[in-house]
Amino acid sequence: MRTSVVCSGGLDSVSLAHVMADENRLTRLVSFDYGQRHRKELDCAAACAVRLQVPHHVVDLRSVGAALTGSALTDDVDVPDGHYAEETMKTTIVPNRNAIMLTIAFGLAAAQGDDAVAAAIHSGDHFIYPDCRPAFAKAFDAMQRAALDGYADIVLDTPFVHSSKAEIVTQGARVATPFAETWSCYKGGKMHCGRCGTCVERREAFHLAGITDPTDYSDPDFWREAVAARETA
């Protein structure tokens, strides 16, 4: 099944790209520039495409991202510290982001003759992001089948949707994903901050998976405090 992967350049999507390549399914990577402050992800996505020897389509959505105001990922809003599953992390929502990106990715897949679009949404995202939940994936898949009815038959593949971040790390390691060449931090600094929700989740995932984390963090130990705070909340 010819599969294009929506690849932000983060740990999850790069791992997914390597899994698809290992299964001889990967045809291309699709990334989106929506004005996000953590733009190092796009460099990591580009490097992944070169490494896996597939085309890399970067779609310019900066004007759209500028209109989706209020998110800490695109506006002058502080990115909160703490565990990913805390209420404060909802400031990192970019409204309808996945629905917008996947719609474009499906159009591209139809134009290029692919059979599937794969996205790396996973269980750790469910609490915060409504467009990362199984119900959304099921509804979106049905909508796209209707939208392309009679023109193309493309499915939405979300193999990580019921997986934890630690399970994704394990799967990524199985196919030799170079984790050091992925970017997760929402703050857009020179190195991973170690304090934002996605840094905490990343560090915790490696710990739970029992796999060495090659990431350099400005604050490498904060994750323990954040996890403990979440567990006692």
Rank of each mutant, 00 (worst) to 15 (best):
C48V: 04
V227N: 10
L61D: 09
S8H: 05
A119H: 13
E167V: 06
D216Q: 12
H83D: 15
R203A: 14
A72C: 11
D78I: 11
S123Q: 15
H207P: 00
N96S: 14
Q36S: 07
W183E: 03
G172K: 14
S8L: 04
G9F: 03
H38K: 10
G194D: 04
L73D: 07
C185E: 08
T177W: 13
S184Y: 07
D149N: 07
S8N: 05
I93H: 13
D43Y: 02
M20I: 02
R37E: 08
G65H: 07
V77W: 11
C199L: 10
S15R: 08
C196P: 09
Q171G: 13
H18P: 15
G172C: 07
G188E: 09
D114E: 14
F179T: 10
A47K: 15
A47E: 15
C7I: 00
A118R: 02
I168M: 11
E41A: 01
V58R: 05
P220R: 02
I121G: 00
T177M: 09
Y217E: 10
K90C: 08
A118W: 06
Q53K: 15
R62M: 13
A111V: 13
G70R: 10
L68H: 05
L16Y: 02
L73C: 06
R230Q: 14
A109R: 02
A110S: 12
Y151H: 03
E41T: 07
I93C: 11
D114N: 09
F32D: 01
P134W: 10
D115K: 04
P80N: 12
P130R: 12
C196Y: 10
A228I: 05
R202I: 05
D43T: 14
G124S: 06
Q36A: 05
Y217N: 11
